[in-house]
Amino acid sequence: MKGNEALAEAAIRCGCKCFFGYPITPQTELSAYMAKRMEKSGGVFLQAESEIAAINMVLGAASTGVRAMTSSSSPGVSLKAEGISYMAGSDLPAVIINVQRGGPGLGSIQPAQSDYFQATKAMGHGDFHVMVLAPCSVQEMVDAVTLAFDKADQYRMPVMILADGLLGQMMEPVTFPEAKTELPDKSDWAACGHKNGRKHHIINSLFLDAPLLEAKVKERYERYKQIEENETDAELYMCDGAEIVVAAYGATARVAKSAVTKARAEGIKAGLFRPKTLWPFPVKEINQACKDAKCILDVEMSMGQMIYDVKLATECRIPVEFYGRTGGVIPTPAEVYDEIKKLTGGAQ
């Protein structure tokens, strides 16, 4: 199944009751699939007049306790930033998918990873985070959707799936989870009509009383600390005894894996560290992967954004080199292999 469509089907299986989209390459098939399937599954599909309207429709639906989702690509996600900040500030769960494309500006329609900073550091104004999941296959995208909805409800926050045009457009075999019927009960906070049975619920992010806002933000950061301690995830490939560890995520990680496999075959002690969660960044896992490493090679489809987290997580104990292509150009395994060889001077 095509990545974009698998994302949509997975959401429906997870009990997502509404999808608000807007056309933008390379994720438009997701909306088109939702247009076909969502209503039949008893949900709501609506193409909004803009990505701004779409994220606000998600905000409205999520406020009433329903699982809601939207998807877009880089420029569209920039438009959604304010809405996402409001949702974080109102403790609203939702799933937002960014099928990244080259940037900045209108950029290009080929895959890229140049929205890493936006997703993990500054998705909008104010102190907040969104969980950021980074699948690298169609199956992992399906699994990421399931995880995203569960974590969004568990921690009451927006969760982003950071994919890219490659993952969105590629076709791979995939298996779906069973359709989820019982969904978490949100009646203790949802604004869905109080039936004269309770005090009215207010979904709001405005707190003009500064100490109250501070308390709200600090409480949220308690939840973030729990997430950082419990929700990190990464794949370590051939890292035992690895003297050079390649750090890469998403589609780039597949390119890097081929290069690492080839290098290992030629006696170069190479390994791959692939974060599956970008926020919270897998600090424990990367240090475990690099315990024997003399050098880290960070490979991204950007000018180098995750590299900062790699350095931070390893506290710059190990030199971190960078190799990246951007603008929608996809690095090849050969290019990454050459970098590994250059950095290790070939097999000892």
Partner: peptide, 25 residues
């Protein structure tokens, strides 16, 4: 009643989202 505070200018979109998934409200 229950109330949702919308970003500046976006109330009709927020209301659309809320109404579409709660048509009887």
């Amino acid at each position: 009643c229950d109330v949702i505070q919308a970003p500046h200018g976006r109330a009709p979109a927020v209301a659309t989202g809320a109404k579409r998934v709660n048509p009887d409200k």
